[in-house]
Design a protein around this nucleic acid. Structure first.
Lengths: 208, 208
DNA sequence: AAACTATACGAACGGTCGTATTATTAGTTT
DNA sequence: AAACTAATAATACGACCGTTCGTATAGTTT
């Protein structure tokens, strides 16, 4: 992938540019709406040259999901992990997720919401990978909650609480794109606050 | 649509059969994955004959969404409305929604989850209609909650509570299809119970 | 300088897409 | 039985799909 001196080979620059565009397209039109011809035209390169980088449509889709995962991690997970483990981090995770959706890091809203639904009922490598990423994400929330429980800041079932929080995120994302307004984000933030408050151990300082 | 004597004209029988198949396909592969040629082949009729019923792809998609809305209403709204207004109806709405998803009334899970995400970031009549149906559904939950509030069974903001409940439904639906297990439904049911319990006016008999 | 590899290109493949036009069949009405 | 209408089919169209091929160019290695 990378040369020893840190510069990118020519081919990797192209690949990178392709994937940056691909994630944006897919967040709006899905991974099937992401056609190779369209992608090539938008980037001003040849269809065959682009295709050679991936070898198949499915490989392009997988590479696109991997690229989106990196962007997602940078925008949601990394900033939340700058906060100390505990209730503060759980709250940060919620804030950053909602900001990630609201600020349209992907123009179509949350990339994974979009394509997870698209491939939810299909078979194949893309479905498998998306299911794994979803599980990875749920595990991450559960871990953050479990840390807060272990520190005596929250008292609740981490799996249940993670389910609830993630449900608020997703509902806000869909509502905001579908109706092109931002009300859902305030609703979700409120929902998170209420839900966390219901699990907070009395006396714990609260981050909101 | 219907003849005076109640029997269906020949064309309407075809139309009905087409739409029944169309909603199933779309719940798995989306409204774009629903191609006219495929639909015709699966039904053993000609592409052109099928096409003549709708006149355009978009009209077929709209008709499919309308057909799905009817099925949705029959499976979720109607049975919940057999329960008296109040907390009981809110609970029934939740139960029937989760059953509707779990029993795979549509093979790909909730039809509207699927296609609402597919068209969330697009423009056109299908998007508009799906947004309207979503709003209609949220209004319906809000009304059910508001009735319970008015009867003194619940004390909460109907809009907020409706948002939360709907979020649980959708999260359970996605999780169950993506991972092909039913755990999400128990999580969601539990989430609904907890959330309703937090809003229940003390002394109110509880339906679960 | 020669050999080799990486990258990109244009052209073409068989298929499927949505759509339009024209023809044929089946049902109803007179 | 003839005439008319509604429903279905046959055929064809141009556009685009993912994919393959042969080829040209640029960079690197020997």
């Amino acid at each position: 992938m990378e040369k020893v001196d840190g510069r990118l080979a020519r081919g990797d620059q192209t690949r990178r540019a392709v994937l940056r565009r691909a994630v944006d397209i897919a967040s709006v039109d899905g991974l099937e709406g992401l056609s190779i011809g369209r992608l090539a035209t938008e980037l001003g390169i040849s269809k065959s040259g682009l295709f050679a980088h991936f070898g198949s449509k499915e490989e392009l889709q997988l590479a696109t999901v991997r690229a989106a995962r990196r962007i997602y991690a940078d925008n949601v997970v990394v900033p939340a992990y700058e906060i100390e483990p505990g209730l503060g981090r759980v709250w940060a995770l919620s804030r950053h997720w909602l900001d990630y959706s609201r600020s349209r890091v992907f123009p179509g809203g949350c990339f994974f919401q979009k394509v997870s639904h698209e491939f939810s009922a299909r078979e194949g490598a893309v479905h498998e990978y998306l299911a794994a990423v979803h599980q990875e994400w749920m595990d991450l929330i559960e871990t953050a909650v479990a840390e807060a429980v272990q520190r005596g800041e929250l008292a609740d079932d981490p799996v249940q609480l993670a389910f609830d929080l993630n449900a608020y995120y997703e509902a806000a994302n869909l509502a905001s794109i579908l109706h092109n307004d931002e009300n859902g984000y305030d609703r979700a933030r409120q929902a998170v606050r209420i839900r966390l408050a219901s699990a907070v151990v009395p006396g714990t300082p609260v981050p909101w």
